[in-house]
Structure formats: C-alpha cells, structure tokens
C-alpha cells in the first residue's frame, strides 16, 4: 500500500508539470540599438559562391590538429571561396585542469556548438561539414574526405549575395546583414549569424607532440542570430531583406580577432546556400 502511494505521488509529480504559455507566443525579435545603415548597392556580377567548412573539434582530441592543418591547406587553395569555423564540442572539448603536460582549463564549448553537435549527430572527432551539404548521402564526414568532397561540388552561379555591416556602439556591437536573392529560392530560408575568434593561445593535444601554446583559429564563440537562425521572407530574384542585431562583446574575447559569419540556409535540409564573413572591427 505504501509502495502504491509512493508511486502515485511520483506519477502525480511527473504529470503536474504543464507549461502554460502567455503572450507573446512568438520569440521576440532582437531590439537593435543602432539605426539601420545604408548598404552599398550589390554588384551581383562580383558575388561569388562561398562555402563554409565546419570543423568539429576539441582541445583534447589528438587527431584534431591534423584536421585543422587540412582545413588551412584547403583555405590556402580556395582563398575567399572557403570560410572556416572550428566548433569545439563533445567530451574531448571538456576542460580538464591537470591532464598530462598541459592544463586544458579553457572551455571553448558553446550553446550553439552543442546545438549543432546534437542536431547533426556528431559523435566522432574530427568531423566536418561543407556548407552542410550531403555527399554520398552523408552530411558529416572525416577530414580525409573534406578536400575531395569540396572539389566534387559543381561550380554554379551564386543564388544570393550577403552583405554585412558591423558598427561599434560604445559597449556593444550592432550587426546588420542584408540578403539579396540573385535567383528565385522557393524553399523556406533562414539566416544564421555567428561570431568566431582567431589567435587564441591555449593548449591542444596532438598525436605527435602536445602543444601548451597552440594557436586556435576560427573558434565559434556565440550565435548572434537566434540559435536556429532567423526566418527570412525573401523568395524571388532581387528580393532583399535586412536583419539587425546588437550584442555586448564578452570581455574575454579580443574584438580585433573576431569575425562575423553570416549564412543563409534551407530550413528543411539545413544546406547552406551562401555564406559571408566580415571582421568585427576595421
């Protein structure tokens, strides 16, 4: 009898949870503290199709520096066409003060990185995605396939151009992103805006020699847009839309090393249709 009573109490406690949502039901739009600037006219013939290489990594992952070297090599070959981003996530990105020769006390994991890791089911490191496109029905793959998969993409004219303006406004930054369609995009598209940081000196395990002063580049720091991107209403050629954001910069991040990455993606497939990068400060 006592057991039944106990179980009943446990069950009642479980079901008692009910979330009553009050208005407004929609996630509130970011209030931007700066006026929307005038964007220069987009020269559509000068727009090039760009790709984003997302490198899922961790500072205690011994094979990850190898992947980063491959990414840098690809960037050297592709130039502005390829943008890099390192997403630290998973158990090998956990901070650990005294693990061997170096102290891995820094934590580069982020909410947005964790969300991507879960969403794209990243379980082994290093793993990457190229503009979240599928190659042989795989969206994620090891560093050995990065270059060949990137080279296998048929080069087509870009279907959108992205312009970014960054304004430093006392303690915070205002970011404006203008998306202009160069062809019709019938699919529902969303805008992702991320902040990455270069030149972070912090330990990194390496299969050859661990480095206590490894230079981490392109490290994902935060999402400036909503965590799953913001809805865009453009769909026809020449449609354009400006989204604005403002955010305070974390004191630990060096603004001169930070970049903004803005990308539009198909909300059904997550494939990135265009991506652009801008230094946070001039």
């Amino acid at each position: 009898m006592k057991k039944i009573l106990f179980l009943s109490i446990v069950i009642i406690a479980g079901i008692a949870s009910c979330d009553k949502i009050n208005k407004p039901y929609q996630v509130s739009e970011n209030i931007v503290s700066c006026d929307t600037p005038a964007f220069p006219a987009l020269n559509s013939s000068a727009v090039i199709q760009k790709y984003l290489l997302e490198d899922y990594t961790g500072h205690q992952c011994q094979n990850c520096p190898r992947a980063q070297r491959i990414a840098v090599q690809m960037k050297t070959q592709m130039g502005d066409t390829l943008l890099l981003m390192a997403v630290h996530s998973g158990t090998q990105a956990k901070p650990e003060a005294n693990n061997g020769y170096c102290s891995y006390s820094n934590d580069f994991r982020t909410d947005i990185g964790n969300r991507y890791t879960e969403k794209f089911n990243i379980s082994s490191y290093p793993t990457g995605m190229i503009s979240r496109m599928s190659f042989n029905n795989k969206q994620t793959f090891g560093d050995g396939e990065w270059a060949s998969n990137l080279n296998s993409i048929p080069r087509t004219a870009p279907n959108a151009g992205i312009q970014i303006i960054s304004i430093e406004n006392s303690e915070e930054f205002c970011i404006f992103v203008k998306t202009t369609l160069l062809s019709d995009i019938p699919e529902q598209i969303r805008l992702g805006v991320l902040l990455i940081e270069d030149n972070i000196v912090s330990p990194q395990k390496d299969k050859t020699v661990d480095s206590c002063e490894y230079v981490h580049n392109h490290v994902l720091r935060t999402s400036i847009a909503s965590i799953d991107g913001d809805n865009l209403t453009v769909s026809k050629r020449d449609d354009s839309q400006i989204k604005g954001y403002s955010f305070p910069l974390n004191q630990a991040w060096k603004k001169e090393n930070c970049h903004i990455i803005a990308f539009i993606f198909d909300s059904n497939t997550d494939e990135i249709l265009q991506v652009e990068e801008l230094k946070l400060t001039k």
């Binding site: 079901i15 949502i21 996630v27 809805n231």
Partner: peptide, 18 residues
C-alpha cells in the same frame, strides 16, 4: 502530460502539455 523539447526558433512552445 506529455513532454517534448521546444526547438522552435520562432515560437515559445509548451514543452509539457497536460
């Protein structure tokens, strides 16, 4: 009561519905 994570970027959704 049912539980489902709210991953919707546009709406605040009830995760627990009774």
């Amino acid at each position: 009561s049912k539980f489902e994570v709210d991953n919707d970027p546009d709406y605040n959704l009830p995760e627990n519905v009774a």
